[in-house]
Computed example of a mutant assay.
Amino acid sequence: MKIYWKPRRNLYVCLEHFPFTKTDLLGWWYPVLIFTPDLSTTGYVVNPQIGAATYNFIHHKAVGISIFVLGMMLATSLCNWQA
C-alpha cells in the first residue's frame, strides 16, 4: 500500500501546482491558498449532517478534477475565441 500511496500523492501535488505555473499569481499565493481554513466546514454551523455532506462533497476528488478540467477547457476555448 505504501508503494502505491506515495506516487498517487505526488501526482496530486503536481496537479495542484500546475495551475499556478499557468497564471500570473505570485509564488507565495500557493502556500497561502493551501493552508487557509477550509470554508466547506461552515456547513457544520447548520447541523452535523449538513456539515458532513458539504465537506464530503467539496473534498471529493472527482469534483476537484472536474472543476480543473472545465477550467482548462474554458481557458482554451476563450483563448481560441479571442484570437
Rank of each mutant, 00 (worst) to 15 (best):
W81C: 06
N80T: 08
K22S: 03
M1S: 14
G27E: 06
C79H: 09
Y44H: 11
W81M: 11
T21I: 07
Q82Y: 15
I34C: 13
M73H: 07
D38A: 15
Y55F: 13
V45L: 11
I58S: 01
P37R: 02
N10P: 00
G51L: 04
H60T: 09
V32C: 08
Y55L: 06
L26W: 08
L78S: 13
P31Y: 03
A83C: 06
P37Q: 07
T76Y: 14
P31L: 06
N80Q: 12
K22F: 02
C79F: 11
K22A: 06
M72Q: 11
G51A: 10
G43Q: 01
A52R: 14
P48H: 12
S77G: 02
Y30R: 04
T21C: 05
L74F: 15
V69H: 07
T42E: 05
R8F: 09
D24T: 10
V69R: 10
K2R: 10
V32A: 15
Y55P: 00
K61N: 10
A83I: 04
A83R: 10
D38G: 15
A75I: 00
T36D: 04
I58Q: 03
M73L: 15
M73W: 10
A83W: 09
P31A: 05
E16F: 00
I65T: 10
F57Q: 01
R9Y: 03
V45F: 13
N80A: 14
F68K: 00
Y4K: 13
L15A: 08
L15Q: 02
V13C: 04
N80D: 03
L74N: 12
P19M: 02
S66T: 15
P7G: 04
N56P: 00
T21E: 04
F35P: 00
W5H: 09
T54V: 15
A52Y: 11
Y44F: 15
P31H: 10
A62T: 07
K6T: 08
N80I: 07
